[in-house]
């Protein structure tokens, strides 16, 4: 299926066999192809972690920067060239831990980018320490008595901050994830798609079976535009975990304050030296 996809890039991947990252990558490729985008029109931004290697495994532009700093870099790139479609793909440690502050402020700015978090509730690249989303009680080498810090709920926070689009998916369900990514991209403003993803090497609690037993798709009776209901839905976790669009909210995007889509991107603008003269003249 992915063979004909022009975003597909055949290259060796440094992911474990069975890792959820593979299906998230395929979902991203499919969503972009379905949206009829061309590789040169897309920029994939990431931080550091297993998930953050994704920009190296897809045919598109990439920015693989620092741990935790994908969102500010994505913001800068989108502002520099608003015609680029900007996606961020990184992990729970990267976005919610190291980059937690940027997560808050990227949502507040409502910059028109789509954030796909590969949420496996564990640190994979550093070999199995708790992440901000690890469940209470999970025992690791650095949490030998089990996690006793309450887990971070990214969806609750995103709803609270009035994110434009808040969704959750499960990596195994590729078609569903693809659909959510497409919808996230199409929604103007900041879109979060938190994708639950098993880590077959280090997370022996939240396995394929664990997720499969719990996730259920939201149906048409759920209204994602109602903020208080969305908040309640976003806090649902345990025996039942909802997947689908949790919250949708229409508000002005960051760039709506400065730029219309037809405007010249920043990178094409030139400074008029005559106008610099006017700045100098103001000093007399």
């Amino acid at each position: 299926m992915t063979k004909e996809n022009h975003f597909h890039y055949s290259v060796e991947r440094a992911w474990c066999p069975g890792c959820g990252d593979y299906s998230i990558l395929s979902s991203v490729e499919n969503a972009l192809a379905n949206l009829k985008k061309k590789p040169h029109e897309v920029l994939m931004v990431s931080g550091i972690g297993q998930a953050a290697k994704l920009p190296h495994y897809i045919k598109a532009n990439g920015f693989d920067g620092l741990h935790g700093r994908a969102l500010p870099a994505a913001f800068g790139a989108k502002v520099a060239n608003h015609k680029l479609m900007v996606l961020v793909t990184s992990g729970d440690g990267d976005i919610y831990g190291e980059g937690g502050n940027h997560f808050i402020h990227a949502i507040r700015r409502n910059i028109d980018i789509t954030l796909i978090v590969h949420n496996n509730q564990i640190y994979g690249l550093t070999k199995g320490q708790a992440s901000p989303t690890s469940d209470l009680g999970m025992v690791t080498k650095t949490q030998p008595d089990g996690v006793f810090t309450i887990p971070f709920n990214p969806l609750e926070m995103a709803v609270t901050l009035d994110a434009a689009f808040v969704a959750r998916s499960f990596s195994k369900d590729m078609a569903f994830t693809t659909k959510l990514i497409e919808e996230g991209i199409r929604t103007p403003g900041f879109s979060l798609i938190d994708v639950l993803q098993p880590c077959v090497s280090f997370n022996h609690v939240n396995t394929y079976k664990w997720y499969s037993d719990r996730v259920y798709q939201l149906d048409n009776s759920y209204d994602p535009t109602d903020k208080s209901k969305a908040y309640k839905k976003s806090s649902e976790w345990g025996d039942k975990i909802p997947i689908g669009v949790i919250f949708k909210n229409s508000r002005k995007t960051y760039l709506d304050n400065f730029i219309k889509h037809k405007d010249l991107p920043l990178i094409k603008r030139k400074t008029n030296i005559k106008e610099v003269d006017s700045l100098i003249n103001e000093l007399y």
Partner: peptide, 10 residues
């Protein structure tokens, strides 16, 4: 990092 994102984009 914002400046670097913008810089990388040109």
């Amino acid at each position: 990092n914002m400046a670097l994102g913008a810089g990388a984009a040109g």
